[in-house]
Amino acid sequence: MQKKNWSRKEWLSILAKSDLDSLSTLWKKVQINAEYEFFRKPEIGTVMVRGRSGGTGNSFNLGEITVSRCSVGLQTGEQGYGYIQGRSTEGATIAALVDAFMQTSHKKLIEQKILKPLDAIHKRNKKDLASKAEATKVDFFTLARKS
């Protein structure tokens, strides 16, 4: 099940969906330090979410979600872009730094110590939800009619 290599799109998505407490705790544990500059200071904003009429038809604007984002540049040249759901400048900064360090020799360490645990939490939550839903699935009893 566990994938060995995440694409950048995948790791950015894992970061975006992670909850701040776990992200922050895991980040503090790896203790990577490096000089960096902000290209875009962490900021809080919204994204307008779209749906489709009838699920498959023309798109329409459903409503907004809060999103925080940040982008950093390491002194060694790597650029990091972080997006995270909700309002957390700290989370956005960590996400951007993780993205930047994933392009350095720290890649392995970050995969093991941050991305893997975050992904596991996410998968476990999804599985728990699915299992609770499964328990409410209806079993219809049908009676065979006598002719």
Binding site: G45, T46, V47
Partner: peptide, 30 residues
């Protein structure tokens, strides 16, 4: 909401790939 900048628009969400916690139909049983 009006105090926040809008970063952009999402792609239309795909409700076909929704992870359902409830899902019922009044038209078909099975």
């Amino acid at each position: 909401r009006t105090t926040l900048p809008r970063f952009g628009y999402s792609a239309p969400i795909n409700t076909d790939s929704m992870q359902c916690t409830r899902r019922i139909s009044a038209t078909f049983k099975d």
